[in-house]
């Protein structure tokens, strides 16, 4: 029984390491940022996921103490990875407006990467010096 548990932990650790390595290699190898975004998500979900499941099996099965921390880290990473990828893609489109030329119309005045003004901002339009200097 202990041998099987050790085998499972070892396989999960090796798989996690391999996936993290593949994700980082893809980030070096792929040609531009929007394709590069694809690779590290594999590292997030499968690489860290493998290491976390390995650690859970290790502490619950071999050390005899159940630890739930890993589920917390997994849930947090699974929740936040799409958000940060989305933000990075939007900021990249914001920095390179020429990439938006092939995309369909957004149906509003602003382009793909720029947000509208906040709805409760009703005071008369003044040129915000910070924003004006940024663009």
């Amino acid at each position: 029984m202990e041998f099987i548990l050790e085998l499972v932990v070892s396989v999960l650790i090796v798989l996690g390491g391999l996936f993290a390595l593949i994700g980082s290699f893809g980030m070096v190898k792929l040609p531009d940022l929007l394709t590069r975004l694809h690779a590290p998500t594999k590292a997030t979900t499968l690489g860290v996921g493998g290491a976390l499941i390995a650690s859970m099996v290790f502490f619950a099965g071999l050390e005899g103490r159940l630890s739930i921390h890993e589920v917390l880290i997994t849930a947090f990473l699974f929740l936040t990875a799409p958000i940060s990828a989305h933000f990075i893609a939007k900021a990249h489109l914001h920095e390179h407006p020429e990439l938006c030329e092939d995309l369909p119309e957004t149906g509003r005045a602003l382009g793909w990467s720029t947000f509208e003004r906040l709805p409760d901002n009703d005071e008369p339009e003044e040129e915000d010096p910070r924003r004006a200097s940024h663009h």
Partner: peptide, 22 residues
Amino acid sequence: SLMDRVLAVDTMVINTIALIIL
């Protein structure tokens, strides 16, 4: 580009998490 560096740091943090767990 700038966002490449942000993405690199983001991925590095994730790899560091896996290292800490191991």
